[in-house]
C-alpha cells in the first residue's frame, strides 16, 4: 500500500453476448468471427463497479482497465472509460490469435506488472467460454494472494488490507487479505450508467493499443491447449412420453402428417390428467436425472 491511495487494475474481456446465436463454419469447424456480438463480460462489469466504488471511498485511488482484445472490440471497451476508469490498456497482437486461457493470463500479468498495482479485480469467469481460470492464473503469476467468487469488496480494517465477502455452500464468509491481492467477483451491484457527456468524451479519448513488444516479449506465450473444433450443440431433446411414445417411427410420422405441426408440438403433452400420467412424468424426471434429490443432513451412520 502506498501513500497515493489504491492502484486498482481491473481485468475486462469483451465476450460474445450468448443471447445471440453464433455461426460455426462447417468446413473449418471454427466460430465465424463476423457472427460474434461483442459486449463487456458481465462479471467483469461487476468487478469494474466494485473498483469504481473503492476508488470513490479511498482518496487518490486510480482504476486501470486491462484487456487482451482485438481492435474490433475497442468500441465496447470504451464503455469502461465512459463510466469513469482512469486508463485503458488494450493489448493485442496477431500472434496471440489462438492463445489459450493460460497465455492470455500471462499477457494480462505482464501488462499489470508494467504499472503500480495494489489490487487486481476481475470477473470470476467469462460469460461465453466459462473457463473460470484467468483470474486465478494471473494471481499465481503475479504471486498475489487471491480470493475467488466474491460478493463484495470493501476497504479493510487498515489500509494494507481489504475485506471480501464470499459465499460457499451453506454460509457467507467474511474474509480479509493483505494487499497486493487479486479478487474475482461473482455478484454485486451492476455497473453504473454513464452520463451522455462522459460517453461522448470517452469516444474522443484515444486508446493506445499495446503489442507484444510494448510489454517486452518477442513471441506469444506458448499455449497449453488447442481447440480442435467447434460444433453446434445437439438439438434440444424433447422426450415424448405420452401416448404414441413407443409408436414406430413410420406410424408417428403418419400421425404428425395427419395432424400437421400442431400435432407434432403436442406429442409430449399428456392428455389424461390422472395419477398414472403424473407418475410417468415423475419416472421420466428421475430416470433422466433432472433432479438430484437432496441428501438429508445429519443422518451420519
Amino acid at each position: 500500500m502506498n501513500e497515493t491511495g489504491l492502484n486498482i487494475a481491473v481485468l475486462v474481456a469483451p465476450v460474445h453476448d450468448c443471447r445471440n446465436p453464433v455461426l460455426i463454419d462447417p468446413v473449418r469447424k471454427q466460430v465465424d468471427p463476423s457472427s460474434l456480438h461483442w459486449i463487456l463480460n458481465p462479471p467483469d462489469t461487476i468487478a469494474l463497479e466494485q473498483a469504481l466504488r473503492l476508488r470513490d471511498r479511498i482518496p487518490r485511488s486510480g482504476v486501470r482497465v486491462v484487456s487482451v482484445a482485438p481492435p474490433s472490440t475497442e468500441r465496447v471497451l470504451r464503455e469502461c472509460l465512459a463510466v469513469g476508469a482512469d486508463e485503458l490498456a488494450r493489448l493485442w497482437d496477431e500472434r496471440i490469435e489462438e492463445a489459450d486461457t493460460h497465455s492470455i493470463a500471462a499477457l494480462l500479468a505482464a501488462v499489470i506488472r508494467s504499472g503500480p498495482v495494489d489490487l487486481v479485480l476481475a470477473g470470476w469467469r467469462s460469460a461465453d467460454m466459462e473457463h473460470a481460470q484467468t483470474g486465478s492464473i494471473v494471481a499465481e503469476l503475479l504471486g498475489f494472494p487471491q480470493i475467488t467468487c466474491a460478493r463484495s469488496v470493501e476497504p479493510g480494517r487498515d489500509p494494507a488490507h481489504i475485506r471480501v465477502e464470499k459465499r460457499i455452500p451453506g454460509c457467507l464468509l467474511a474474509m480479509s487479505c493483505a494487499l497486493p491481492a487479486l479478487v474475482t467477483v461473482e455478484k454485486g451491484p451492476p455497473l453504473r450508467y454513464p452520463r451522455y457527456s462522459d460517453r461522448r468524451n470517452a469516444w474522443r479519448t484515444p486508446i493506445r493499443g499495446l503489442d507484444l513488444r510494448a510489454i517486452g516479449l518477442t513471441e506469444a506465450p506458448q499455449s497449453r491447449l488447442r481447440v480442435e473444433r467447434m460444433t453446434p450443440p445437439k438439438p434440444r431433446r424433447r422426450s415424448a412420453i405420452g401416448d404414441g411414445a413407443n409408436m414406430p417411427v413410420a406410424a408417428r410420422l403418419q400421425r404428425i402428417m395427419a395432424g400437421g405441426a400442431q400435432a407434432k408440438k403436442e406429442t409430449n403433452v399428456h392428455r389424461c390428467p390422472d395419477r398414472s400420467s403424473t407418475l410417468k412424468v415423475i419416472e421420466h424426471i428421475l430416470k433422466e436425472r433432472l433432479v438430484v434429490l437432496p441428501e438429508k443432513s445429519g443422518n451420519g451412520r
Binding site: 453464433v22 467460454m129 466459462e130 491447449l225
Partner: peptide
C-alpha cells in the same frame, strides 16, 4: 462454449 450455442473439443 457460447452456451447454449456450441460445444468445443479441446486437446
Amino acid at each position: 462454449a457460447f452456451r447454449p450455442h456450441a460445444s468445443m473439443i479441446v486437446s
